[in-house]
Amino acid sequence: MPDTSVATGDQLIIAGKAYSSRLIVGTGKYANYAQNAAAAEAAGAEVVTVALRRVNVADKGSDRLVDHLDPKRFTYLPNTAGCFTADDAVRTLRLAREAGGWSLVKLEVLADQKTLYPDMQETLIAAKALIADGFDVMVYCSDDPVYARKLEDVGCCAIMPLGSLIGSGLGIQNPVNIRLIVEQARVPVIVDAGVGTASDATIAMELGVDGVLVNTAIAAARDPIRMARAMKHAVIAGRESYLAGRMPKKRYADPSSPLAGLI
């Protein structure tokens, strides 16, 4: 059913495919895959990030992600979480393409365990290799506008700067840089990481980003399904607010009621 709360025709286009939802959700840290599926549903998400891991050979009967989130219904966006070199990231995504058959991927090459901050040099190396190999690369990156530009120049199909550290819930720590990245980008900009609550998602969208990627803020909420719904509305509110154009800020009051005709 089309979401009538979103302006018609306002679509997010990534690598040539149109999406009406601007909220991408992760599938990590949920109590179970059933809750995960219910949250993705409540978020109105069309794209979900997924990880690639070794099959547990001893426990083949365990629940599988694909049994709960149908890859025909949700666009699976395989990630490279846990990869600390370009080689590992490229290897992981080649396996992901073989497992799923899709070439749209989320590249992240991390620098250290404590911050999970992206290693931009390795990220750029991996991005080039993947694009040469036919992948559509959405790239997790720092909020450095210079590296964002370089990643776009080598052909990444979406730039995904962090709002703050992965899983931190600290919100949008550097709105000025996010705005600089938005202004220069010719591909979608999606804030990935750091969103802690619904208002953070709205703040990101009001900066003019094209979408928001949320995992922990939903999965670690007391009521994940309700938070998923809140995020959906927050992203729509931020997008509409950005498109509507906010009023100028003033230092003094400006009455909303007419001054004429006062008794």
């Binding site: 997924v50 891991r53 070794r54 099959v55 990630n79």
Partner: peptide, 10 residues
Amino acid sequence: IEIVQFVGGG
């Protein structure tokens, strides 16, 4: 030999 599959992740 490595055998991998999709699991939940962010």
